[in-house]
Each structure stands twice: as structure tokens, then as C-alpha cells.
Amino acid sequence: MLETLQTLHWGAVFQIILIDVLLGGDNAVVIALACRGLEHSKRMQGILWGTAGAIILRVLLIAFALTLLAIPFLKIVGGALLLWIGIKLLVPQEDEHGNIKGGTTVWAAIKTIIIADFIMSLDNVVAIAGAAQSTQLDHQMYYVIFGLIVSVPIIVWGSTLVLRLIDRFPLVVTFGAGLLGWIAGGMLVSDIFIIQQFGEITVPALYAAHVVGAVLVIAIGKWVGLRKAPTKENANGSV
């Protein structure tokens, strides 16, 4: 055991953990938003299972990172899905016959976490894979997995913290949805197909895409939420 620790490339381990922690902020927000509709007794269950699924998926993504990012239209599809997830998070969920529906079941929360993490990880995994390049070829995946495992408690803790903030400040949900829109906007304009057609995107254009994505998600999400609110009130009044 001691010999294994001595032969570890600690520089690579540190880089991978640092990347996971820095990028884990997005994950913590997504996990918290996905679990916010759960009963308090089930929130940790959703966080743990969702995080586990996201980590496993990320390990698989890292193995195929460069190949995935080279597929045209993949980031466009991913960006569109992120926009949809962000909008959906702003739309109030409905309960029927006392059963928890939509995003308020543990399984629904887990699915949202894994789908969002898959989309958001397309760029992130490249950074992790790059950090692992400095290690021996046959040990690279071990370093990646080790770094991810170490970063899990940080992501879980961050998720619980964001959930507490959501309970106290509902505006955090709007911020989180806007964050997904921000990421989606950047993904849409950085797809390999877009770059091939129009060339490398400029920094101002990239920031503009980020802003448009965030505004679009918040605007549509709020609009749909307002349209659903009267319908829900009418349904309650007719009971």
C-alpha cells in the first residue's frame, strides 16, 4: 500500500481533483435543483444515487472524450437538451392523487442529474483526460477514477448546501436554471459543425451566446410557469 502511494503521480492527482472541484459547482447546482422537489427524507437518497450515476457516466465519457467532442451536432443536441432541462426546472411540478409526479420522484431526479451531467461533461472530461496524460498510459484511468472518488464528497456537500439555499431563497432556482442556459449557449456555438462552417468563435460572440442562453431559459421558464399557474389554481378551485 505504501509503495503504491509512493509511486502515485501526485501532481496529476492534484490536477484531476482540482478540476473536479472547480467543475463540481455546476454539478452541485444541477443535483440540488433536480432534488429540490423531493421530500426531505428522500433528498439525500436522490443526491447519492444521482451523484453515483453521474460519476460512473463521467468515467465512461473520459474514455471516449476526444472522440465524442469530434462528433458534429453532438454539442448542438446537448445544448438544446440543457435548454429544455433549464426551462423544465423553472416550471412548477404538479401532484396528482397524492402521488409525487414529474421531477419530484427519486428516479426522476436521478434521471435529470445523469442526463444533465452527461451533457455538461462533454467539455469537462477533456480537461480531466488531459491532466491524466502526464501519467503512465496503463494507469491513466486509475488516476481519473481516484480523482473522481475523492471529489464526490465535495459535490455531495455542495449539493446539500445549495438545497438549503433553495429552501431559504427560491431565487436560487432561477439562478441555477440560468446557469444551465449559460452553459447551453456556449455549447451550441462551439459545436464542431458550427466551427467548420463559420470558423472559430470569437470571445465576444461566445459570451453573447452564453447570455442569450441564460436569458432564453429564464424567460421561457417563467412564461411557461405563469401560464401553468392559473390552470393549476382553476383545477384546485374546481375540486
Rank of each mutant, 00 (worst) to 15 (best):
A129M: 05
A129W: 10
A129G: 13
A129Q: 07
G130F: 06
G130K: 13
G130N: 12
G130Y: 00
G130D: 11
G130Q: 13
A131I: 01
A131H: 03
A132Q: 07
A132R: 04
A132I: 07
A132L: 02
Q133G: 12
Q133D: 10
S134W: 08
S134G: 05
S134E: 12
S134Q: 14
S134F: 08
S134D: 14
T135Y: 03
Q136G: 10
Q136W: 01
Q136E: 11
Q136T: 10
Q136A: 15
Q136D: 13
L137A: 04
L137E: 13
L137Q: 08
L137D: 08
D138S: 14
D138K: 01
D138L: 11
D138Q: 13
D138W: 12
H139T: 10
H139Q: 09
H139E: 12
H139D: 10
Q140C: 03
Q140K: 08
Q140I: 01
Q140V: 01
Q140H: 00
Q140P: 02
M141F: 02
M141T: 12
M141K: 03
Y142W: 08
Y142A: 09
Y143I: 02
V144A: 12
V144K: 10
V144D: 04
V144N: 05
V144R: 06
I145H: 00
I145A: 09
I145N: 01
F146G: 10
F146Y: 00
F146M: 13
G147S: 06
G147L: 12
G147E: 04
L148A: 06
L148H: 00
L148C: 00
I149W: 02
I149R: 01
I149E: 00
V150P: 04
V150K: 02
V150C: 04
V150H: 01
S151C: 02
S151L: 05
V152N: 01
V152P: 00
I154G: 05
I154A: 13
I154N: 07
I155W: 03
I155R: 09
I155T: 10
I155S: 05
I155D: 06
V156S: 04
V156Y: 01
V156N: 03
W157L: 14
W157D: 00
W157C: 12
W157K: 02
W157Q: 04
G158P: 05
S159I: 03
T160N: 14
T160M: 14
L161P: 04
L161H: 05
L161V: 07
V162H: 06
V162W: 05
V162G: 08
V162E: 09
L163S: 13
L163E: 14
R164W: 11
R164Y: 07
L165P: 03
L165Q: 10
L165F: 15
L165D: 05
I166Y: 09
I166T: 06
I166W: 09
I166S: 10
I166M: 11
I166R: 05
D167A: 11
R168M: 10
F169H: 15
F169M: 13
F169N: 14
F169K: 15
F169I: 15
P170A: 12
P170F: 07
P170V: 09
L171Y: 14
L171S: 15
V172Q: 11
V172I: 15
V172G: 13
